Simulated scan of single mutants.
Amino acid sequence: TDTTPVDGTVTAIDLSANTTGVTLRQYGIPAAEGSTAVDTDKDGVPDANEPAIVGAIKLGSGADTLNIENGVVSGDIDFGAGADRLNISGGAVVSGAIKNADGLLDINVSKGTLAATQTGATAISNLNIGAEGTLLVNLDPANNTAGGFNVSGNATLATGSTLGVRFSSLLDGPERFNIITAGTLNVGQIDQTLLSGNSPYLYVVEGGVNQAANTVYVDARRRTASEAGLIPVEASAYDAVYGALGSNETLRNLFLSQTSRDGFIDAYEQMLPDHSGGPLMSLSAGVDAVTRALTGRNAVAAPGETSAWVQEINFYADKDKTDSYGFRSEGFGVAGGVEKGSSLGAFGISAAFTSSDIKDPEAEAEEVLSANLLELGLYWRAQGQYWTTWARA
């Protein structure tokens, strides 16, 4: 068996030898009128007809144009040389590193998303992000680099357009990253809420414009435990968990890909031990149920008599999430005993078996723990007209 890791790359289109220029158009075929086909993004093109290119696109030295009007392009795009254009419309999504050899590239995102994954700024000629466009850039704090674009001409971000960032490494402290530098910069109102929602929840990200330097920047810092709404047991492990992400690429990428609190908390809770005490409290509830079965009997064996008893038991225990995690537990069992009456009351031996399931209602993994209890004991009990007393061991 060949266990060599896969380290190759996928190339979807290779036109790097072309010198005359090409035009590549990706578009979807709308559904027929009255069609009931599933159309998740409501763009008129059924999901089954959404086009996709997966893999790198390599273009040559001619004047090339990519018109991505629908669907998805997932892969690096190397425009080579020449006066090139990238147009994204129709809600299309383009994700990959944007490369260009001579800086002669115009990018226009009128309606759709460009997730530019390069970790260094790419030189282009013009950039336009329309009111229905989204630009995501990649940041690499460990190497002190930021993706995005150096624009020799005009860079325009219309009011309503959305910015977002992705991280390929962890922040050590608050840092500012320039993501767009332009010869002429025109920026509408940056929606900080949309920017935050398009960035890892682990960080607080705010955007701004340095008009004097013609740059768009983002300031990023780690979100505090209080800002994340962590309960005390979660907050106590926050620094340790963050430190562990630096040595585990899989976990780091998992946390850096979460853009909502729900996603972040689902991942974070799986890093922590169970502090709710659910198994112990469930077993304790089972013991209490056995005790109630014993003490709830209305009659005591008369002196010299021997009697036996058996009773089904059910119990329930729960705890809401407060300073520690909550749980829900339901259990059942059976208890019984044999006792002999005397002038001092009844002396007996008891046996019980209980079984319970413990669930954490907020656990992403939805795991279920089981707890079983087998109990043998000795007891004494006595009863009068208005009183009952007992002891058990």
Rank of each mutant, 00 (worst) to 15 (best):
L170I: 09
Q118T: 06
D140K: 06
S168L: 02
G148V: 06
G112A: 08
T113P: 01
A123E: 14
A121Q: 14
T145F: 09
A131S: 15
R166W: 00
L139Y: 05
V137L: 10
V137D: 05
L114I: 03
L135Y: 10
T122N: 05
T145D: 06
G120L: 11
A123N: 14
S161P: 08
I124M: 08
L157M: 11
A146C: 09
S161Q: 10
L139F: 08
G160R: 03
G148T: 02
N154Q: 14
L136N: 08
L163E: 00
G153I: 11
G130K: 11
T159E: 10
T119G: 01
A115C: 00
V137Q: 04
A155D: 07
V165C: 01
Q118E: 11
L163W: 04
A116R: 00
L135S: 01
N150Q: 12
G133T: 12
L163V: 07
L139T: 04
D140S: 10
N144E: 14
A123T: 15
V151W: 06
S152R: 13
S168W: 01
A142I: 00
T145W: 05
G160P: 02
A146P: 03
L170C: 07
N126D: 15
L114Y: 02
T162I: 14
A115I: 09
G147T: 02
F167N: 09
A146E: 05
S169E: 06
I129T: 09
G130Y: 12
L135W: 11
F149R: 08
G133M: 10
D140I: 08
F149K: 07
T113Y: 00
Q118G: 13
A116H: 05
G120R: 12
I124R: 00
G133W: 10
T162Y: 00
N143C: 09
L127D: 02
N143P: 07
Q118L: 02
A131M: 05
F167R: 04
G148M: 03
G153S: 09
L127G: 03
S169M: 06
G160T: 06
N154F: 11
T122C: 04
A158S: 14
V137S: 12
N128C: 00
G130R: 10
N143A: 14
L135A: 09
N126Q: 12
L114N: 05
G130I: 10
T159M: 07
G160N: 02
V151L: 09
I129D: 03
T145C: 08
